[in-house]
Amino acid sequence: MNEYKKIEMIVGAFVLAGIISISWMAVKLGQIGGLGASGYALNAVFTDAGGMRAGSDVMMAGVVIGRVDNVVVNERSQARLTLLIDDGIPVTSDAIASVRTKGIIGERYVRISQGGDDEMLQAGDEIEETESAINIEDLVSKYIFSSGE
């Protein structure tokens, strides 16, 4: 009997350790609930999101200030991104959101450049000014055709 109590306690500790591991991964890595919900959402519409995925970084002045929460195609066949921006980082209403590439592997991120306006965007607002992904093939072909004339 006594031995069974001991086993019961060890099993309890084991299960607890497992649950702590799961919760730590959920909160810290997956940002499920809790931390993931913090921040406020802004929308931005691009004609070409260039392979942006949920989870990609949102950067301002080279600093990560949030992440892409959702990527969908809207009714006008444009890419509509929901950005989750950290609380305490205001974005001006005339800010420009652009799809950029970092590193040689070509990983995409959203760059936000602040404008000069005094008015700040509220949660759920849309960033009007956007720059789509720069498509290198398009650039090259444009160059070739323009130089050919």
């Binding site: 959920a26 890595l29 997956g30 499920i32 993931g36 989870g55 990560v64 992440r67």
Partner: peptide, 17 residues
């Protein structure tokens, strides 16, 4: 750690579990 946190999505955790 930054890359790790940014790239691991809830879907990855669900898949593993």
């Amino acid at each position: 750690t930054g890359e790790m946190i940014a790239k691991v999505l809830p879907e990855d955790l669900y898949a593993g579990w």
